[in-house]
Design a protein around this nucleic acid. Structure first.
Length: 106
DNA sequence: GTCCTGACGAGTA
DNA sequence: GTACTCGCCAGGA
């Protein structure tokens, strides 16, 4: 169980229609179960997801940066695809590129 | 075996 | 208010 898997576990727990920021995930890992607690910077959350292969069952399109903006174009077939998945899951967008973080604060 | 990089965020100047 | 720097861990070259 490395920090990779822990990131995946947290992301997997994000319900459909909800989004979480990198910072939120990192914070959750830091304040999670002591046995699994790791000091992680938000940067590595994204990096772990990037290292993960798309299709591993990890809905990492639900992870956005603190502004609620999607990854520049490193996800799936591009930001459009990620956005598409979020919309089809019922995630609200306050802007063309910004998801509504208030719609589901975990 | 070692060095650099990498989807970010928070703090300081 | 804006811009820059540092920190975190693991994988790849």
């Amino acid at each position: 169980m490395n920090f990779f898997d822990q990131v995946y576990e947290v992301v997997k727990k994000i319900p459909a229609g909800c989004v979480m920021t990198y910072g939120q995930v990192a914070l959750r890992l830091r304040s999670g179960p002591p046995a699994a607690r790791i000091n992680i910077s938000p940067q590595f959350v994204g990096w772990a997801l990037h290292a993960n292969k798309a299709g591993s069952g990890v809905p990492y399109h639900r992870v956005v940066n603190k502004d609620g903006r999607l990854a520049p174009g490193y996800a799936f077939g591009g930001p459009g695809e990620q956005k598409n998945r979020l919309i089809s899951e019922g995630v609200k967008f306050i802007d063309e590129d910004h998801v509504d973080l208030e719609s589901c604060v975990l």
